[in-house]
Design a protein around this nucleic acid. Structure first.
Lengths: 150, 150
DNA sequence: CTATGTGCAAAGATTTTGCCCATAT
DNA sequence: ATATGGGCAAAATCTTTGCACATAG
């Protein structure tokens, strides 16, 4: 499921240089579906490039985002999360543990019809995020409620 | 358009104490439609309570949010924005100036139908945000493009 | 009176940036 | 060679928190 057939030259074409650090950041992000924070991604990347610095990860995430290779998800969490899947898709976030997952549904196409209500705005996209309790947190909460006798 | 007929007693009922600071924070937020950041709200509140501290504003925003009197909008901006309109509604954010406005449309009710795709999750809500260029930034951008001859 | 809130300032957390060296072209 | 990127550490932001005092109920 390769979204960008030739990452190296594509990114290079866009004006950047595909350094090893940049490639590893992108590959690490593309290799997981967990929507990691920058810090989590830093840990992942360090498994391959032990000497990389956090600043480099942040810098490259910003570059890759500007080039459209990565999207940033900062709905309601302390730290931004990142996603190498830039295709239009929606997310669910757990109110309890802040985990973010993809929603296996087609984007609601008709929603772009809201545009007429936005006089004067030039709309380039929209984001949808559901939130609630993930299966794990739901189970934990059920347990603790039981203990409380509530 | 008063959403909470008796703010003081309601908040008190929920366990908090309606201090002057808390009331002014809530009233200031309710008096604007600009979805201010905590810092902007702090400036607003200081017009009435010059001695208030930023920490108090943050603390009370969190309390009021937990009590359901305020919602926090942290879509893609550096700082969270706050909204005293807790009714379900959508927002537009300007990619250029970060301004946030309400969208004058009814929430897309059918969207909650995505729930079946979320096996094991207990969904409690969803958020929709459009983004693009606000009228002002669109005009500015058109001007600068003209100057560049591009 | 007593629990809760406030002011202040310090600490946390996340992210950005300046500086100088490294590296790709 | 030269421009772009990396490592490091400091700084910038935004937000939270500990503590002593104030205040609502």
């Amino acid at each position: 499921m390769q979204k960008h057939p030739d990452l190296t030259s594509s990114v290079h074409d866009a004006g950047g240089r595909m350094t090893r650090q940049r490639r590893v950041v992108l590959e690490a992000l593309a290799s997981v579906t967990s929507h990691p924070t920058a810090a989590e991604l830093y840990d992942l990347v360090r498994q391959r490039l032990p000497g990389i610095s956090p600043g480099t990860v942040y810098r490259n995430l910003k570059v890759l985002k500007d080039l459209g290779y990565v999207q940033e998800l900062d709905f309601g969490a302390d730290a931004s999360r990142f996603d190498a899947n830039v295709a239009s898709h929606y997310h669910v976030r757990c109110d309890c543990c802040a985990r973010v997952e993809d929603i296996p549904m087609q984007p609601t196409v008709g929603i772009e019809d809201a545009q007429p209500a936005l006089t004067g705005w030039q709309i380039t996209g929209h984001r949808v995020e559901f939130h609630g309790l993930c299966p794990e947190c739901k189970a934990q909460q059920a347990q603790s409620h039981q203990q409380e006798g509530e």
